[in-house]
C-alpha cells in the first residue's frame, strides 16, 4: 500500500472557506436555498460546511439529510449493505434552490439515486452538486459537479478516503493505492 495525503488539514480549512464564499456569492442570504447532505459520508462533510456557513452569515440555513439506500440501482448486487440511514428533511423542497453535497464523486450512481430520492420531497427549482473530491475518470453517468474542492486523477482500484477530525491529522483526505 502506498498512501498519499491529497488534502491535508490546512488545505481542508481553506477549502471550507472557499466553498462558503462561493455559496454566499451564488445564494446570497439563502432565503430560497437549502443544503442537502447525502447519507452517510456526505453528511459528515455538509455538517462541517453548514456550521462554517452559518458562522459567517449569521443566518439560519435550511438543511436536510438524505438517505438514498432505497433508490440504489444495485439492490440485488452481492454484498450490498441493506442498512438504511435516516432521512431528515422537515421542509418542502418545492421551488427551492438545492445544493446537494457529497464527499466524493466517482461513478455518479450515488448522485443519480440522490436526485431520485430528492424528488420524493418536492420539486426544487434547481439542484447543484457540491463535492469535496471529484474523481475525474470512470464516471458511468453524465453527472458533473458544480462546486469542486479538488479534482483528482485516479484509477480503478484506488480508494479516496475522507477522514474527519482524526486525533493526529484533523480532517484530511487520503488516496489509498492498492497493490496490483
Amino acid at each position: 500500500m502506498n498512501n498519499r495525503i491529497i488534502i491535508d488539514q490546512q488545505l481542508m480549512k481553506l477549502m471550507l472557506e472557499r466553498f462558503s464564499n462561493q455559496l454566499i456569492e451564488n445564494y446570497g442570504d439563502f432565503s430560497d436555498a437549502a443544503i442537502i447532505g447525502v447519507q452517510p459520508r456526505g453528511v459528515l462533510f455538509s455538517d462541517k460546511l453548514i456550521q462554517h456557513l452559518e458562522g459567517i452569515t449569521n443566518t439560519h440555513i435550511l438543511y436536510g439529510k438524505l438517505d438514498i439506500t432505497f433508490y440504489r440501482d444495485d439492490f440485488k448486487s452481492k454484498g450490498l449493505q441493506l442498512e438504511a440511514k435516516t432521512t431528515d428533511i422537515d421542509f418542502s423542497l418545492d421551488n427551492k434552490r438545492i445544493i446537494l453535497i457529497d464527499d466524493v464523486l466517482y461513478t455518479g450512481r450515488t448522485i443519480r439515486a440522490a436526485l431520485d430520492a430528492l424528488l420524493a420531497h418536492g420539486r426544487p427549482s434547481e439542484v447543484k452538486l457540491l463535492t469535496l473530491i471529484n474523481r475525474r475518470f470512470n464516471r458511468e453517468l453524465p453527472i458533473q459537479p458544480d462546486f469542486i474542492g479538488k479534482t483528482v486523477d485516479t484509477q480503478m482500484g484506488e480508494v479516496v478516503s475522507v477522514q474527519w477530525d482524526t486525533p493526529k491529522d484533523g480532517s484530511h483526505v487520503i488516496l489509498l493505492k492498492e497493490n496490483i
Partner: peptide, 10 residues
C-alpha cells in the same frame, strides 16, 4: 409519512 410515499426499491 412523506408527501410521496413510494420508493422504487423492489
Amino acid at each position: 409519512n412523506r408527501p410521496i410515499k413510494k420508493v422504487p426499491t423492489l
